[in-house]
Nucleic acid binder design. Structure first.
Lengths: 111, 111
DNA sequence: TTTATTAATCGTATATTTGCGATATAAGAT
DNA sequence: ATCTTATATCGCAAATATACGATTAATAAA
């Protein structure tokens, strides 16, 4: 994003944006869904389910992990990923904060 | 994003991702906050508040509008933007759906 | 030890995003 | 009709994101 002026915004705004960014791709939404449907931490399964190359899936997993949405243990050949619930709850809270803040003050819009 | 395989995912996944993408920048989060704090639909004020050029702010507004997060009337020299509550509620619902879906099935993670 | 097997990383091509200045547009004011 | 004012749009440069194949790394199996 070229000349990204992230620093010019509050930490809360940056955090929320970063979290949203991690969700901003259908493949990553799909990965989260897969991680949820199985009650265990798969990984190779994701590659079979998604129409993407292994390296691409690995890259998406890395982004989700960097953003803190998932945790992951790498045990040699077999990795293990799972949802980071605390992070999700924080996002939910932050998002609700923004959402409710808006809703209370401005129930009916002017346009 | 090069070779974007969006089509390979469900509509719900794409919608959620698109919505998240619109939120995936601190400037756009800040714009939504500004639109909320005033109980009217300003616009030029945003330019004064944000540390960005007028053309850049206009571009972010356009993206928010394209994503359906805000509505806007352009009345010649004076535009009028405001939150699209229905869109927000839809996103909130979709996100909760994903979130709850995950939480119910997988209360404790394995890693 | 050698040989799978699984996942991460590297390198690369291409598309998209971000940001800005400059310009165009469109209504109101003079 | 001309000038102001407020936005949108265009065109560009630089940074990121997406995707893939090829390679590396690290454990398990033989």
């Amino acid at each position: 994003m070229a000349v990204h002026k992230k620093e010019a915004f509050t930490q809360k705004e940056q955090d929320l944006a970063e979290f949203a960014k991690a969700l901003a791709h259908p493949a990553r939404i799909a990965i989260l869904k897969v991680l949820a449907q199985r009650n265990e931490c798969i990984c190779g399964e994701i590659v079979e389910i998604l129409p993407l190359a292994q390296s691409t899936v690995s890259q998406h997993l890395k982004e989700l992990k960097n953003a803190g949405l998932i945790d992951g243990n790498v045990d040699g050949p077999r990795s293990c990923y799972c949802i980071n619930w605390k992070a999700f709850e924080k996002f939910n809270r932050e998002f609700s904060w923004l959402f409710n803040n808006l809703k209370i003050k401005n129930e009916k819009s002017c346009c």
